[in-house]
Structure formats: C-alpha cells, structure tokens
Amino acid sequence: MERVPCVYMLASGRNGTLYIGVTSNLIKRVSEHRQEAMDGFTKRYGIHDLVWYEVHETMETAISREKQLKKWDRRAKLRLIEQHNREWRDLWSDLTSPSMDTGPRHSLPG
C-alpha cells in the first residue's frame, strides 16, 4: 500500500478513553495498536477501536491537524467523532474490507 498520511482516533469504547495519532500507513499502525505490539498508552488502557480518521495530502498537514486535535477539549473530540461515526462503530473492518464506501473521511485511496 502506498503511503497515505492520516490522523486517527482510537477509543476504548463509546465515550471511552481516546488516543489521537498520525501515520503514513493507517492499516499497519491500527493493526499494531490492536495487537498491542508496543508498550504504551493504548496497550495500558485497552484502546483498540478505530472511531475516526482523516486522510491528508501531506504528512506535514496531518501532523499539524494531529497537534490541533490534541489541544481540543474532550467534548469537541467527541463531537467530531459523532459527526462522522454516530454509532461509534469500529472502522477497522471498513479499512480491511475490499469495499470501502463510507464517505470521504473514511476511505483510503488505493
């Protein structure tokens, strides 16, 4: 898969603990979180559900957006998730299934 800059949010469950990250390979990175391949925040708090992501043209804009989102208060982050994923579905299957058709914020080229 080609490198695609993305900002993403994981959650431990609906309205649970949130994690915001940035990557150029969303499938690989989320898989690492899900498999608890690395020690850290997401492993410690059981944060595995991909609840939101946003594709960017460049890594620079993705990093800038990640920093912006990390400054937001919790209510604003919850609103952003619910604007695009009202049910708090784990979007992992959307990423890994051959028919990704869930809208512009939830699809990767390729």
Rank of each mutant, 00 (worst) to 15 (best):
Y8R: 04
R74Y: 12
H48S: 14
E57D: 15
E82H: 04
L69T: 02
H33S: 08
L50E: 08
Y8F: 14
A11W: 07
V30R: 00
V55E: 13
R65C: 09
A37E: 13
E36Y: 12
L95M: 10
K43F: 01
E57M: 13
G46N: 12
S97M: 08
Q68P: 02
E60G: 07
D101R: 09
T58G: 09
Y8G: 08
V30F: 00
M9K: 06
T42Y: 03
K77V: 12
T17R: 14
L91S: 00
H56Y: 15
G21A: 01
R74T: 12
V22P: 03
I81F: 08
K71C: 04
L10R: 09
H56W: 13
L95D: 04
R86F: 11
D49K: 15
L69H: 03
H84E: 08
S107V: 03
R65G: 03
G110A: 03
M100K: 03
R79S: 15
A62V: 03
N15Q: 11
E36F: 14
G13K: 10
M9G: 08
P104M: 00
D94R: 07
M38L: 12
G21P: 06
N25Q: 11
K28Q: 10
R65S: 10
W52G: 05
R34H: 08
H84S: 08
Y53N: 06
M9P: 11
P109E: 03
W88D: 00
M9C: 09
L91G: 01
P109N: 01
L95Y: 05
L78F: 15
R79E: 14
R14W: 09
R65L: 02
V7I: 15
M59I: 14
G13D: 12
R34Y: 08
A11Q: 05
E2M: 13
T102V: 01
G40N: 03
M1W: 04
D94V: 14
T23F: 04
L10C: 08
M100F: 01
E54N: 14
M100E: 01
G21S: 01
G13V: 05
G110Y: 03
T42E: 04
G110L: 04
W72P: 00
S93H: 10
L95N: 04
S64N: 12
R65F: 05
W92M: 03
P5A: 14
N15L: 14
L78C: 14
D90H: 02
P109L: 05
V51W: 06
L108M: 01
I20N: 00
S24T: 11
Y8E: 07
E82D: 04
T17F: 06
S93G: 04
D101G: 06
K71E: 11
T102N: 06
L78M: 15
W88V: 01
E36L: 12
I63V: 12
I63F: 05
